[in-house]
Design a protein around this nucleic acid. Structure first.
Lengths: 337, 337
DNA sequence: ATGTAAAGGTTATGCGATTAACCTATTGTG
DNA sequence: CACAATAGGTTAATCGCATAACCTTTACAT
């Protein structure tokens, strides 16, 4: 359709009467054996002709690709809208920045099965991958079958040393929330979470630690329609507590709206703490007090670890990102009554 | 690090004592000149050895890549969080689905300048790109300099026939909002928008058409900090209207929250209509009435057009996706007073 | 004068897959 | 029986780049 052809190393070389090796070496800064004059000449021509490398050829000749794959579990619970989830969107946003700043390219994919990930990484000769949102035995499986550097951007903390793992300090986040509630005089605290998710469990254990006693626990269902029934069913129960700790802002806000509709005042009647530090938490009325996780730092840590692993496969680590309590208006001081 | 090597076509061929051409032909279904027996044999072996093509080699040998690039303008107004914006996140989500379902791969990138897009598309030998969020003269520039199929997923409607363009029916959306407000007895309507953005302008013109008269117009600033001053400064003015049409849910919800804080009841005192049909609109209190755009359909249309263009560069089209009014609780009937 | 090292390159091969051009044996046909 | 056509492949060039191995010239020391 457009006739002008792409400029190749060969073209540059021919136009200058040098070999392709020389041009290639200049491109990669291997100029020890090339006169300054020639280097200048080649660089000028490259610039002039707007040379852009053909990645396919580069990729084939070397054996690495400068591609980092980001694979997200296409979990049915998101009904195909996973990239619109605020945590995932934020992760993708910051991972994208870090990958690019490090001189790599990002390929993004939703996957349902481990096999898809392996095929994806393998066919593109990826240097490394970041995986998000799979469950523990899927990661086990993946670890045994994949042959490239891999960082798990997710909820598990387990012993291993072949793959990187970035978690946030769920326990400490819970603990900070617990301490804050205790400081504000709350003794009857309910934690809503899913105890089958180990991330949720760690947050629950943290809140107990912070409170200095066991908080009550209520299992919240993952499915949206079931959650509505759950709220209705437990309405009376909620009223018995002075504070509720929800393991995500999403749950916290949903619960808050439910209670507000039922004429329960937040925080006058019940205090609520969430977890995530999402944008929605900032916008809510009252502004939600929440345990804030630093998504940017997390992405930075993940990609810098991954790149270290790409360059030296012995460095796999488990890293944990600290969290911080962000105080809003959804917790009331019970001492000042 | 892991010793097992990848299976190549050559390996398969050697193990079976056939040529690589035969294996390659089987892989691509060019089996007219191969006996059924051989086909079966090769297929079995491919399966058995878990053959995965090396895309770099494929890409180099053919001249297409099966990569579709999605490039989003990294506009400073998003402060580096562009992929977290609900419209963009939704676009990425659905584009990703469509690209994958069509057998392509998605490379995602934020770009500041046109040059970055050209380099990106060129180095990966992309089959096509989808560009989002640039302004009109940047698209002009891009159109003149890029040599592959391209679909603009954006706000402009202009005459051209070399590149695809997917818009939504901004005018009709405004018109529907205007008609609905008129039906509900509103005569004093204010439109908040940015009249330098032609998308906003079309929505404004639409609302006037629907109302059957010129609505008043107020220019809203893009910068967040300026917007807060804007709201405060125009508070008295807002109160003179019975309804406000904001050109995005984002603006509408921000304004609604501002007014609610000022003890203005929505919709009793002022009715509000937004535009987008975002998730946030669904969750707001009262639920925002909004012009809903179908992001999935839009992505489908964009990718199917792009793929038609990839296969036949003469088909570039301007396509417009219809919108639909989604009635919430933020508009009050003024006739029944 | 001879050997050797450094400077400044060039040559040629390989990466894995695609594909046009070519080859051979068998069957069909007038 | 001679020749063509078909079936069922194979061979080898090619895509653009990277890089190890090789080559030539000049400078310098002995």
């Amino acid at each position: 359709m457009w006739s002008e052809n792409k400029v190749r190393i060969k073209d540059i070389a021919e136009e200058l009467g040098v070999s392709t090796a020389t041009v290639s070496n200049v491109l990669h800064g291997k100029t020890k054996k090339i006169s300054e004059q020639t280097v200048k000449k080649v660089e000028k021509k490259l610039e002039e002709r707007g040379y852009i490398p053909n990645m396919a050829a580069t990729l084939l000749a070397r054996n690495n690709s400068r591609i980092i794959g980001v694979v997200v579990n296409n979990h049915p619970k998101y009904e195909g809208h996973i990239f619109e989830d605020s945590f995932i969107a934020s992760a993708i946003n910051h991972l994208s920045d870090e990958i690019e700043d490090s001189g790599y390219f990002m390929m993004l994919k939703k996957a349902k099965k481990i096999t898809e990930i392996i095929e994806f990484a393998s066919m593109w000769n990826m240097d490394g991958i970041v995986v998000i949102g799979f469950c523990e035995d899927e990661y086990q499986d993946l670890r045994d079958r994949i042959r490239i550097s891999m960082v798990i951007y997710g909820g598990f903390v387990y012993e291993q040393n072949r793959y990187g793992n970035i978690t946030i300090d769920d326990f400490d986040g819970g603990r900070q929330a617990g301490l804050y509630l205790k400081k504000n005089g709350h003794r009857k605290v309910l934690c809503v979470a899913d105890n089958e998710v180990c991330m949720d469990r760690r947050r629950y254990e943290g809140v107990c630690e912070g409170l200095g006693e066991k908080a009550d626990f209520l299992k919240i269902p993952m499915q949206e329609n079931e959650r509505h029934i759950f709220y209705e069913k437990n309405f009376e129960k909620f009223l018995k507590y002075t504070a509720i700790f929800a393991v995500s802002d999403f749950y916290a806000l949903e619960l808050m709206h439910f209670l507000q509709k039922k004429q329960v005042n937040i925080p006058e009647d019940i205090s609520i703490i969430g977890f995530d530090g999402s944008v929605d938490a900032k916008k809510s009325k009252p502004r939600l007090t929440t345990v804030k996780q630093d998504n940017k730092l997390r992405a930075q840590t993940a990609i810098s670890l991954l790149i270290r692993m790409i360059n030296d496969s012995s460095v796999a680590e488990n890293l944990c990102i600290p969290v911080e309590l962000e105080i809003g208006e959804s917790v009331k001081n019970h001492i000042d009554i």
